[in-house]
Every structure is written in C-alpha cells, then in structure tokens.
Design a protein around this nucleic acid. Structure first.
Lengths: 148, 148
DNA sequence: CTCCATGCAAATCTTTTGCAATCCT
DNA sequence: AGGATTGCAAAAGATTTGCATGGAG
C-alpha cells in the first residue's frame, strides 16, 4: 500500500520535472496496475479502465511510466508486448513456458552481476537488464502437452 | 565453411524427419544467412534474396530454422524482430545501445548457469536463454548523443 | 500422382499519429 | 490564456494467411 503511494509520488515528481501535467487519466493508469497481474499487456489496462481512458492514452501513459522507471516492457515471445511494474519488486528473471505461457520468476541478482561486469568492461552505461529462459514448465511436462 | 555445411546437413535432416520438402528456396534462405550480419531482420533476408524468394516464404522458412535450432529470434526493443544464427556461435548475451542501436556481445556462460539452476529448481525444461542489457554504448556516451 | 511449397494480395493485429476539442496550471 | 492532453479514427508496420499454381518425392 505505502509502496503504491510512493509510486504515485514518484510519478508525480517525474511529470512535474518534465513539465508535464498530472492528469486524472495518468493517475488512473498507474492505479489500475495494482489490480492487474504482475505481468500484463496494454489491452488489460484499457479493459480495466474501459470507458475512462482510451487505448491511445494507455499506450502514451505506459511509455511515460517506463521513462519514469516505474514500469518496464518485457517480451515473452508473443506478438504483443507485456509490461511489469518495477516498484516494490525484487530483481528477477523470467522462465516462460512455451506451452501454457505461464511466467515463473527467479531471483536475478547473480545473473545481473554478470551483465554489469560485461557492461563495465565495455564502457557501456547499463540501464536495464533482461534475463529470460524459454522452455516448458513442470505442469505442462506432467500433462504431456506439446509444442506451441 | 565446414560449419555452414553442417548447418545445411542439420536443416536437411530436420526437414526430412518432419516429412517436409528440401527445396531450393529453403536452402537459399539458410545460405543467405552467411552473408548477413550476425544479427539481422527478416527484411534483410528477402532483400538479399530479392526476386528469388518472397517475404512470406522468408518468414515461413525462418520459423522452420528456428524449430530446427539453427536460428533464434531475439528482441532488441524495436518494433520488428531480429534473428541470429546459433550454429558456430558461442553462448553469449547482448548489450543493446539505446542511442545507436548497436549490439555488443559478451560471453554468457556464467549468467546462463544461473538461469539453468533456477530452471532445475522449478522442474522447468529449459530450451533457450535470453540475457540482454539495455543502455548507452561507449561511443554514444563519448559523442554525447542522447535518448531514444 | 499426391502432397507440399510458393507467391501474391488481402487480412490481422498491435501500436502510433494527426487533428480538433478539452483539460491543467 | 496557453500549452499539454485526450479521443477518435485513420495510418503504419510487421507478420500471417487463403487460395490457386507450380514443385518435390
């Protein structure tokens, strides 16, 4: 709860410093994230806010949240993008099941360190790390489901 | 060179075992990959094969090559997908510059190990690992270029 | 000869954009 | 007031698909 308040404050600060307006719609998008799963798609946001906020605004706001460092876009090998909020979350990687699409998370601290070292060695200013594994989850293996 | 022969043999075996035809076009796509950069987009393939192979066939063949384990689709944060060949390549991660789009590679063995351990712990059958860092490369920092 | 593969063009689907109306500050 | 924001509908792109024709085994 307090984490959400912090997130809102962070967003407001970001907007003010960028000379942008703090609007009802923008805050509504941020608030909607509380009721969505950890990983969500843009469509889920405007379905949750149906008739309050248009799709265009959802996309525009998600981009702002990304720039504010509160949300990050992640690819799960599907045609459309997924997002996850970054506030109140530990550093982690994803295991994406190719059968059911489920996404498991695992602590990402040590893998992240490898990427950081590589970045340092190359003079690369690192701002985001993506660690992802694709395969078949335990449930799907048990069920014997195949492919995707 | 011998690596490319191996790749072709592997592709032929894959096609035969799947009951698919070994066609001129399919082999042409695989051969074209030799002359493309390590990371390429679908459009580069059919530009290289312009008037020999249609875009639709390029996409269909890239998917086969993916299933054959010879090519892998990678996301660099752009609207369209990128691909890289996996044969004759060491395990590696990517550092993607958000300014110029350049992609640096770094050895990925140890980061991969972390993902493998997480997968083992979860009974997850891992088939592919993606390790990616986003930020600004040394050149772009020196030039002082900003954003993207 | 029987499927499989291919090209072409149309269809899909997600995301972006132009523009006029409306909202912040 | 004056720039920023929004919705709507259209545009833009990348990728996929239906279908009739040509190719592989």
């Amino acid at each position: 709860m307090s984490r959400n308040v912090d997130a809102q404050q962070a967003f407001v600060s970001f907007l003010r410093e960028a000379g942008l307006n703090v609007t009802r719609n923008r805050l509504a998008v941020l608030r909607a994230l509380r009721e969505l799963p950890r990983h969500f798609e843009a469509a889920q946001v405007w379905m949750a806010l149906r008739s309050q906020v248009s799709p265009a605004t959802v996309y525009r706001t998600l981009e702002l949240l990304e720039r504010a460092g509160l949300v990050r876009k992640v690819e799960f090998g599907e045609a459309h993008a997924h997002y996850e909020r970054t506030f109140g979350r530990e550093d982690h990687g994803h295991l994406v099941c190719r059968v059911c699409g489920r996404v498991l998370e695992f602590p990402g601290a040590s893998a992240r360190r490898t990427v950081e070292e590589a970045a340092a060695k190359n003079g690369f200013a690192l701002s985001e790390v993506v660690i992802q594994g694709y395969g078949v989850c335990a449930d799907c293996r048990a069920t014997g489901a195949e492919r995707v």
